[in-house]
Amino acid sequence: MTLLVPLQGLNPVQFLVNGLVFSSVIVLASIGLSLVYSIADFANFAHGDTMTVGAFGALAAAGVLAPAMEGILVFGFPVWMFAALFVGMALAAVVVVATEFVIYRPLDTGSIELLITSIGVALAYRAVIFLGFGTDASRYGVPRAGPIPEIRETLNLAVTPRQVVAVVSAIVLVGALHVLLQYTTLGRKMRATADDPTLARVSGIRTREVIIAMWVIGGVLAAAGGVFLGLETLVRPRMGFDILLIVFAAVILGGIGSVYGAMLGGLVIGMLYELTPLFSMVGIPIGNEYAEAVAFVIMVVILLVRPQGIAGDAT
């Protein structure tokens, strides 16, 4: 699943560039997972498959939109892909909100039962995708563009337009979330509910609405992450589940329940994941087939050394 772009005269900064792209995916995914952790108080194992739902929603939309909007480019990037991205985000939001109404809300149980239920939800999402799209990997069909020549010549770095789109979109989405959380009434309500749901409810906050908002935000961001992951690699039915462990590692590193911690954790884990090939350059032979194992080892080390994470206080 490497995002490595082959390059002669290997520039170590290249790994950081690739890492930044992968980090964008992980950051987008880890925010939603962290929100569910802090507001609904459970580990949502269906989050990875929510990313897959978004990615496949965009895939289906791309199939319809691409012929209709052929040839229109924005920043050297086909505009239909942006439209497909929005369709994927909307679909994921609808699916997770429907799941909340049909499955999670009627359950009046503890966080452990919710966790186990979310595994069932994850399997169901994936099964439906398998039924609809088969088990093969697909592509969005965005024309392969080579590295942007200006950057290549000046900095000796291979940066493709789609990488720029992924990173810039992630920054925009994360910035929007920051504004929402800090400067709007909904954001204050969400933070209050995360701090203490009972107190929030007593203060007149409709926590059910907050929970719906949480699902919409988490679903939209997860879908964006899924689409960017699909753009860089392939769109596969298992893509979300395969990446879930790394997303969990990011959330734990950031401190469970802390949204800003999750962003930071996602950045760090995404970088480390892409830097795995560097280990073999300094003499530690870890092949890319063990990139997941590296994420796992990082997670175990975090749990041993600082289980509360960078920013969290929960144990």
């Binding site: 069932g120 939800v121 399997l123 994936r126 099964a127 039924l131």
Partner: peptide, 16 residues
């Protein structure tokens, strides 16, 4: 995939 769906739904339904 049907088996996967069945297992998923069974988990959800039993907990519920």
């Amino acid at each position: 995939p049907l088996r996967l769906l069945f297992v998923g739904l069974l988990i959800i339904l039993v907990v519920r």
